[in-house]
Design a protein around this nucleic acid. Structure first.
Length: 272
DNA sequence: AGTAAACTCCGGAAGC
DNA sequence: TGCTTCCGGAGTTTAC
């Protein structure tokens, strides 16, 4: 669920509250969420100052004062909530971070446990080795290289190692608004269309960030607020409803093993 | 009751 | 042969 706009909203919510905070203690209630093993998480972080909250693609990174970073991946149903120490704990609360002073607790809640955290090296360069360029940062030249491959457009946008941050929702929205069928091969898309997709993708992501993301079911920002971009979806979740551009019924099909929404007349398959 | 769901990793088959 | 792409299963809980 949380894709780039939702993770960015979480980062923006946490930043003013947590930057500068010093860790008092960490509780690991569900060990399987700590990917490198739970041993040492508290020891490693206790007494350290959180200096920055960063995001790359769907990944959040907390930098701590001397040379430690904690990466967080929210998976499908993960959330990071700011709550007072006395507040009742939500079910599926797996990690609790406490800070010095009157700063609220940070709680990692994740019913499906697809998310996780792991310790890493502090900020090294613009992006980490296992992720492609961030979808908001990627330049047109780099984007063209990505789309020079003989692979379905849907798969190219969704592969985090190729391009980081796009998930099912924004992928379908970006392809619709660019008039590209998700099955079209990267190397069958014209230069002009690739440029259009690059422009459209960023515009959608920025619009979604401004709307604080899309709340379909579970997603909430760290202060509990919902997003509103779901009201502006053109195809996602609109199977059978008329296309807002031409009136044709929106279709839902499986592409790259993912449920995919498209308008068959606005998004023709092209082949060169 | 069965199935699908917004994610990622991984192994192996298939394609070029 | 070797690289790229494709597919399905696992991990987990909830809701329709």
């Amino acid at each position: 669920m949380p894709e780039l706009p939702e993770v960015e909203t979480v980062a923006r919510t946490l930043r003013p509250v947590l930057e500068g905070a010093v860790v008092r203690s960490v509780s690991v209630l569900e060990k399987s969420l700590v990917r490198h093993g739970p041993k040492g998480l508290g020891v490693k972080l206790r007494g350290r100052k959180l200096t920055a909250v960063r995001r790359h693609g769907k990944r959040l990174t907390f930098d701590f004062d001397p040379g430690v970073a904690l990466h967080v991946h929210l998976g499908m149903t993960g959330s990071l909530m700011l709550e007072e120490a006395g507040d009742p704990r939500e079910k599926h609360t797996h990690l609790v971070f406490r800070f010095e002073g009157s700063i609220p607790e940070l709680r990692f809640v994740d019913p499906r446990r697809f998310g996780g955290v792991w310790l890493g090296e502090p900020s090294s360069g613009r992006f980490s080795a296992d992720l492609g360029p961030d979808a908001l940062e990627v330049g047109l030249r780099e984007f063209r290289t990505i789309f020079s491959r003989n692979r379905q457009a849907k798969a190219l946008l969704m592969d985090q190692g190729t391009l980081a941050g796009m998930g099912n929702i924004y992928c379908d929205e970006a392809l619709f608004r660019s008039g590209i069928h998700p099955l079209t091969r990267g190397n069958d898309i014209t230069e002009a269309q690739v440029a259009r997709l690059h422009r459209t993708m960023k515009k959608i992501l920025k619009g979604a960030i401004a709307a604080r993301g899309s709340t379909i079911r579970d997603y909430r920002a760290s202060d509990g607020s919902e997003g509103s971009f779901q009201f502006r979806h053109q195809v996602y979740g609109r199977e059978g409803e008329p296309c807002r551009r031409c009136g044709t019924a929106v279709m839902r099909v499986q592409i790259a093993s993912r449920s995919t929404h498209l308008c068959p007349s606005c998004q023709p398959i092209t082949k060169s």
